[in-house]
């Protein structure tokens, strides 16, 4: 799961810019509550993605609070496509192996 946090966050951001909490809520919603990212690792993962140029962040004031909003960059969109392709390949390989279990 830990190795896929980046891809999951990129996927959640593909719907549009969002704050950190909204991203974790979106992941929970899309997975029907089964996929609960450890929230403490959410922001470090976002910072890593930002350092890699895959997401960009900006701040805005909402109700007197400074909030940081994340969005996908062009590189992030390309990385997400590549991650999805790798994931499909991995899934197909595992399926092939499991199919032959007697």
């Amino acid at each position: 799961m830990r190795g896929h946090v980046g891809m999951l966050l990129l996927a959640a951001l593909a719907s549009g810019p969002a704050h950190g909490y909204a991203l974790s809520a979106e992941l929970r919603r899309r997975s029907g509550g089964r996929l609960a990212i450890v929230e403490g690792s959410l922001y470090p993962a976002l910072h890593r993605l930002e350092a890699a140029g895959l997401v960009a962040s900006s701040t805005e004031d909402i109700d007197g609070r400074r909030r940081r909003r994340y969005e996908l960059t062009a590189d992030g969109k390309a990385a997400l496509k590549e991650d999805m392709r790798s994931w499909e390949m991995f899934k197909a390989c595992v399926d092939d192996v499991l199919r032959e279990i007697p």
Partner: peptide, 19 residues
Amino acid sequence: QRRRAVEEIRNHLDDGAAA
């Protein structure tokens, strides 16, 4: 980075508690 991390965690806690 420390200031930003603490600010984000603070906001996250506020959002989580509100939810």
